[in-house]
Design a binder for these strands. Structure first.
Lengths: 231, 231
DNA sequence: AACTGTGAAACCTTTCACAGCT
DNA sequence: AGCTGTGAAAGGTTTCACAGTT
């Protein structure tokens, strides 16, 4: 894809280069490990085995070890992982040490829920600004923040920022475009619609009705199997 | 795993057996195709090519065709897919024709947002009952439904049901256990915690803070890369 | 000519099983 | 003895490219 993809350089590499790449599937699990580790730390545990941590995170231990090996993380053979050290490593890898502001657009039911959602605040990331296109909502206080108008977007987005879209579907693409214009390069979309963004922008979506439909599929399949078993 | 896994039966199979299995990755995309198709149908389109539908769904066309081929879906070569027919096929596959009730537990901020979320109602699936453990909330009207007490759970869960957990993390496992006892076999968890369920129960989770942390990782990586480029 | 359906290749993820460290 | 880190195998997913159908 780019120059970083070159074969092993023949010249001497001064630093061991342990930025190995970290597969996406692993990245998606790091936050789960992090939460489990915080739980253990709160209980006063100082070390943990891959077996125990995997259990707490709901994955199998081989997967956990492989995941951690991608961060070049060092556990101690015969002992396990140092809880605090691992928390620090994963947090650094996730970029939770750098301050990273989060802007939420759309303070309807869902936006309100997200603003108040404890899980967000828990570690490192919290919502910093609330915006809405409806002027009658501007000035409202939600979860300790004052709702500002969409037009203030450029003032609000300073430095590295993540945008969260919690508007109705028909407003989502326009909001998305404005976020991108303002310099946001990571967007989390809750609106039930497909958004398009330039390739330098990371886009993730959470779609509540899709999750339900996937479960519906499994229910349906279970029902079909049960009927089959009767025959 | 079980008897359905036997090798090709030597006996004559009366029906062609086109229940091929449908990979998980495909199942997860069917709802997206379905939404895109409804959009096209609303615009009056009667047929659509894999290229156009893929575009609307935000995937590439080879993937779309492969996905649809798993349903044994027949498009017409040289023409494309019949929109209504495809809607019917995908809906059937997802089990959206069977009535399937959805029970939501926890009517805090998030539960309220989910209850009012338009996307749910859109096609086939809608929330049928709201439950909460807090008696002061019982009787409240939300999105046309009356909040009932958690103890009414057995009355509410009739036939095939999907449970949605929108409680605080520390209540989630108990609620989950009660749903399972009541006979629920598919659960969607919004609480930021790892739940354990018996193997016959399907469990999916949506974790808002995890999504943000994944984006944080990508921001972090982009920043690191930009710095590297300066050197 | 246009477009689907699908083997085969490429890629990514998970799991296994054990060498190697403490 | 106990537990991590990791090659190698197995399994799943995406992409390619084209034969086959209308």
């Amino acid at each position: 894809m780019d120059a970083s993809n070159l074969p092993e350089d023949a010249l001497a590499t001064p630093v061991p280069r342990r930025r190995e790449v970290v597969p996406e599937a692993t990245v998606a699990r790091l936050p789960i490990y992090l939460r489990a580790l915080h739980g253990l730390a709160d209980e006063g545990q100082t070390t943990v085995s891959s077996e125990a941590l995997a259990e707490a995170a709901g994955v199998n231990s081989a997967k956990l070890r492989k995941d951690l090996s991608h961060l070049g993380s060092y556990g101690t053979r015969g002992v396990g992982y140092d809880v605090d050290h691992l928390i620090a490593q994963i947090s650094r890898e996730l970029g939770l040490s750098r301050r990273c502001s989060v802007v939420l657009v759309g303070v309807g039911n869902l936006g309100r829920a997200l603003a108040g959602y404890g899980g967000f605040a828990s570690r490192g990331l919290a919502i910093d600004a609330l915006l809405d296109a409806d002027r009658s909502r501007v000035g409202e206080q939600i979860a300790g923040l004052t709702v500002r108008h969409m037009d203030d977007l450029p003032d609000v987005v300073t430095g590295v920022s993540i945008g969260v879209i919690a508007t109705p579907a028909d407003a989502a693409q326009e909001v998305c475009d404005r976020l991108v214009s303002a310099g946001v390069t990571s967007i989390l979309n809750f609106a039930p619609t497909v958004l398009s963004v330039p390739s330098h922008v990371d886009l993730r979506k959470v779609d509540l009705s899709i999750e339900l439909q996937i479960l519906s599929f499994h229910e349906h399949r279970k029902a079909a199997r049960a009927e089959g078993a009767l025959a």
